[in-house]
Design a protein around this nucleic acid. Structure first.
Lengths: 184, 184
DNA sequence: ACCAGCATGTAAAGTGTTACATGATTGC
DNA sequence: GCAATCATGTAACACTTTACATGCTGGT
């Protein structure tokens, strides 16, 4: 089957917030965890099968035939806590933007400038989206809300850092462009 | 063989800065690109074989038997430019720290606090390391240096954002801990 | 009757890491 | 001679994504 611990953690964690169908879980992961986590479609269903077989989640019938709601069992909560307590695996980064800028000499200043501008726009949109989510989370007085707030704030800091970097980067590229012109 | 475009880009790019052995290339990628890129051992050699077969790099003999220096050919430079011009694939994030904090209620405030403190330490060490690298890059007047500087500055902004976030997060956790105590 | 969206699942292909195997060279 | 490091490569495994296949339900 081969379902990683990381996927099990995300699935158990998602279901620990509220029982739901696999389909809904997938949307939850995409929409709510999307800023810092991804789980592909083809991972979620095998993970649900495996977790159910091990008694960590249970399937509850719905009115609608062919669909079921999954809920975490007490054993599942125990397992989730064990998984969360493991040290986070240090992630291997793959930032396509920075790789391109690193070899930017081959790409040229104009294309680099465009890459930075695109990244800046994305960060701006992200920041706007996050402030809306922040308001929601701050209004929510559930026990999970303070922890969720931590991740929202992390996203905001990261997005603001990207904006500040983009402005610095555009300055560097500007100077680079004029220096190259002058030396020609 | 199955060597992705991304790996080809990193390998061609690395060799475009200076011709070197596969072994040296691996160290370059780990030490220089390590902040934002990773390439495993078992990817680099197959990539070199493939790129040589396609005439994008060439193998030059060294004094030492059994080792060779790889250099990018004109075709290889062309290919590198094509690869760099492709839009960066949007990366699928997997931030184990934020995932754990999101489900932090199951983990408890103390363990969360420790996770944040660890992240803060790592960011501090990173920032110190980057300021040394920054000095090196600023002293270097090669044509690649201004572009490399962009990536160093990106690392600095990201590290400072992590520090600022960690301080915010510790505040939130503090308030959370006292609120929990009071309600018991 | 039909379409859009909900829901579940599998198979194949692609991607990436780890562990292993091998040998050369340099300094002690 | 021996250990550390440089150097190259492969094979097995682990992980992920993508595309496909299937059926239900509610609204028009």
């Amino acid at each position: 089957m081969a379902v990683s611990d990381q996927t099990q953690m995300a699935v158990l964690g998602g279901l620990s917030l509220a029982p739901m169908t696999g389909y809904a879980l997938r949307e939850q992961i995409r929409d709510t965890l999307g800023q810092f986590w991804s789980e592909s479609f083809g991972q979620i269903y095998p993970a649900l099968t495996l977790l159910e077989r091990d008694g960590l989640i249970e399937r509850r019938e719905t009115l609608r035939s062919g669909s079921s709601i999954f809920a975490v069992t007490p054993d599942g909560v125990q397992r989730l806590r064990e998984l969360l307590a493991e040290a986070p695996a240090r992630e291997k980064p793959r930032n396509g933007l920075l790789l391109r800028l690193f070899f930017g000499r081959q790409l040229g200043p104009d294309a680099c400038r465009q890459l930075v501008l695109d990244a800046r726009s994305r960060a701006e949109a992200e920041l706007a989206g996050l402030s809306a989510i922040r308001a929601e989370v701050e209004a929510d007085d559930s026990a999970d809300a303070p922890y969720i707030l931590l991740t929202v704030v992390a996203g905001e800091h990261a997005a603001r850092a990207t904006l500040a970097w983009a402005d610095d980067a555009l300055d560097v590229l500007e100077r680079q462009a004029t220096a190259t012109q002058r030396s020609q």
